[in-house]
Computed example of a mutant assay.
Amino acid sequence: MPINRNALIRYKTLDNCLRNKYRKWTLEDLIDACSEALYEYEGIDKGVSRRTVQMDLQLMRSDKLGYNAPIVVKEKKYYSYDDPDYSITNIPLTDQDLGTLSEVVQILKQFKGFSHFEEIGGMVNRLEDKIYTSKTQSTSVIDFEKNERLAGLHHLDTLYQAIIKKQVIDLDYQSFKAKESRVYKFHPYLLKEYRNRWFILRVAEGVKVHLTLALDRIKDIRHNHLLTYRENNKFDPNTFFGNVLGVTKNAGQKAEHVIFWVDTKNAPYVITKPIHSSQIVLREHEHGVVFQIKVIINFELERELLGFGDFLEVISPKGLRNRIANRMRNSLAYYEEEG
């Protein structure tokens, strides 16, 4: 059954709403969400009718689209999925979907090798592998790094659209340390992936500093039509993150030279997979290799260095060396405790 673009936008919007367990959705709420989505994506300012959304929910429940969505109504008022792990995005691809994807792959492969499209190589390989395994019902021949239980990925498209359309959003966010969520009036600039986890970079209303938030801690996103998007034409992600390992960078923080030693056995791993693009070899001797990188000193850097255990020694700066040493002593104390 062919699906037009507007209907697909409504289905995806309803899916995002019904997956959001932090909010109760009435039929009126779903109608408003669909109307807003069509306005944001297609510029359609005519609201979605009650009957249209009711029919959408009925179709999603049925097998006509292959969704068989477990949509339930609780307290005779609130709509949700009976299965909290369900999403229409998880259903198997149809033959029509596979055919369309195959055509897309063939087009993308024509651009592989061009300098402006260097980053699409991995994407094309992922698509080819997905199509192959779906068509042949066989196991994957490429095992990419992934985290199938990663939360927050359903926010990616909403945030992406907000960035390219320069829209302010109200974002409910709860850090791991906070007991309750708080609302940020958010001017989003950049989506960034680090170690298979996604982050959004933004400037909050009333402040000038950048803040990076993890998508897996976002509870809800709403468009704010009252505020004007604050552009930052001076922001360059390559410059901003060029001296950063990970995503953490405080305002005014300067990069420092970090010098560390790696033993002979493990040095080849660091040479072939540098910790940072600024990495150089200062000297080599029979017991190991001394490296230097120029980076912002942050939590991600410390975690990376600690991951080498006793194979690596931080030589300078002194403050970083002392923190690493203290962390290793604290770790050793756990193992030395009796019981």
Rank of each mutant, 00 (worst) to 15 (best):
P188D: 12
R230F: 03
R230T: 07
Q253G: 03
L201G: 14
G206M: 08
G252T: 07
I275G: 02
F186Q: 05
I259G: 04
T239A: 13
K219P: 03
T228R: 13
R149A: 10
W198A: 11
A204C: 05
K179W: 09
N224H: 08
S278A: 10
H257D: 11
L215Q: 01
H257T: 10
Q167T: 05
R197M: 08
L227Q: 10
D170V: 01
I164T: 15
K273S: 13
I275Y: 01
N196G: 05
K273F: 07
I259T: 15
N232Q: 06
G252I: 04
Q161L: 11
F199V: 11
D143H: 06
K179R: 10
D170H: 03
D263L: 13
L245G: 11
V209P: 00
K177H: 10
A204D: 15
K179I: 07
K208P: 00
Y229E: 03
T228F: 00
I163D: 00
F241S: 13
L215N: 04
R197P: 06
T248G: 02
V247H: 02
D216C: 04
G246Q: 03
D216Y: 01
E148K: 14
P274L: 04
K249G: 09
G242R: 03
R149G: 00
Y269N: 15
L191M: 14
G246L: 03
N232R: 14
E205Q: 15
T158A: 08
F186D: 00
F235G: 10
F260R: 04
L201V: 15
